[in-house]
């Protein structure tokens, strides 16, 4: 991208490199969460950081999300730049009170006097057979809340670059890392650094239909686009990157071009982010649409444990292809 040689890295390594760089650059930055220190992180993202930065800056916490997120908020108010890791979004609900009632509201309630520059990282999503209490996609819960920024890095470049930009933000930012991505590999420039967090990205340009995904569904959308290309259908794939605030301009511009949209969301369809995007497209691009907007979401069940049922419950490339074919109608 910028001429520096590219190397293969895993998503996990990119997250780790981002945290290491942040702690090197700014003494106010520290990492806190369950098992982030001695164990090296549930997903091994912080492996080695305890040795490198010491227990003051890489802190293991009790299994008490409400408490340690609250501590993170306090530290942020006090001038620190905490990175707080929550093991999965399911568990973050224990800290929802802190996130919604404190982190997201204090700037507003203090007339601008008190900001909470907190960064929350948490794993999300299904696909690893860890059953219903560890697998849900609840990004839309947080994307609903004014006062938060919500990010979903889907590539190694974003895993590497979004954290620093988030730390620079004067208000709370949540990063959702899809748990199936940690082991995936991607090309990353050796000198890769911070990236903007205010725009969606067109991951594949196309003219027949816009397929929108984020986090764990971007790769599935790209795979579906590859399968569609074999049938002569040219799909554009958009990676939302930022779930709040949504980048309406990129979405609307794409749909104005392709006139069709298929929204892929690992959340449940009812009340989903896909539903919100659908509404915005209808509000802003109604007269450009050439087919009803389609959504490919997770089946409305708690995520099943057995692999075949889990696979069947989640959006998959085959289901995305079917939705696109139904959308393009006779052309398919």
């Amino acid at each position: 991208m910028n001429g520096a040689p590219a190397v293969k890295v895993t998503y996990r390594e990119a997250v780790r490199a981002a945290m290491r760089e942040a702690m090197q650059r700014d003494a106010r930055v520290f990492l806190m969460g369950e098992d982030v220190g001695r164990y090296g992180g549930t997903y091994a993202c912080s492996l080695g950081l305890l040795d490198e930065f010491g227990p003051e800056r890489v802190r293991d916490t009790p299994l008490s999300e409400g408490a340690f997120v609250g501590v993170g908020i306090g530290a942020a108010i006090g001038g620190m730049r905490p990175i707080v890791e929550i093991m999965t979004v399911n568990f973050s609900l224990l800290a929802l009170d802190q996130i919604l009632n404190n982190a997201a509201t204090l700037r507003h309630m203090s007339g601008g006097q008190v900001g909470v520059p907190l960064v929350l990282r948490m794993a999300t999503g299904a696909g690893r057979q860890v059953a219903a209490q560890h697998s849900h996609s609840l990004e839309n819960y947080y994307a609903h809340i004014p006062g938060l920024k919500v990010l979903a890095p889907a590539t190694v470049e974003d895993a590497r670059g979004m954290l620093w930009t988030a730390l620079l933000d004067p208000d709370p930012v949540i990063l959702f890392e899809h748990a199936t991505l940690y082991g995936t590999e991607g090309e990353l420039a050796e000198d890769a650094g911070a990236v903007p967090i205010d725009r969606a990205a067109v991951r594949r340009a196309g003219r027949d239909v816009t397929v929108v995904g984020y986090g764990g569904t971007v790769a599935k959308a790209l795979e579906a686009a590859r399968m569609l290309a074999e049938r002569g259908i040219d799909a554009e794939v958009i990676d939302l990157r930022t779930l709040r605030p949504l980048d309406d301009e990129t979405l609307v511009a794409s749909v104005r071009k392709t006139r069709r949209a298929v929204l892929v969301d690992e959340g449940w369809k009812t009340g989903s982010l896909a539903g919100e995007i659908c509404a915005r497209l209808v509000e802003r691009a109604f007269y450009d649409l050439d087919a009803p907007i389609a959504r490919v979401c997770t089946e409305e069940v708690p995520i099943p444990y057995p692999k075949h049922l889990e696979d069947a419950a989640l959006p998959q490339p085959g289901r995305i292809v079917e939705a696109v074919l139904a959308t393009v109608g006779g052309r398919g």
Partner: peptide, 11 residues
């Protein structure tokens, strides 16, 4: 119409 459910499309 050649679109979904026989709907008329722009084409």
């Amino acid at each position: 119409g050649t679109g979904p459910h026989g709907a008329i499309t722009r084409a």
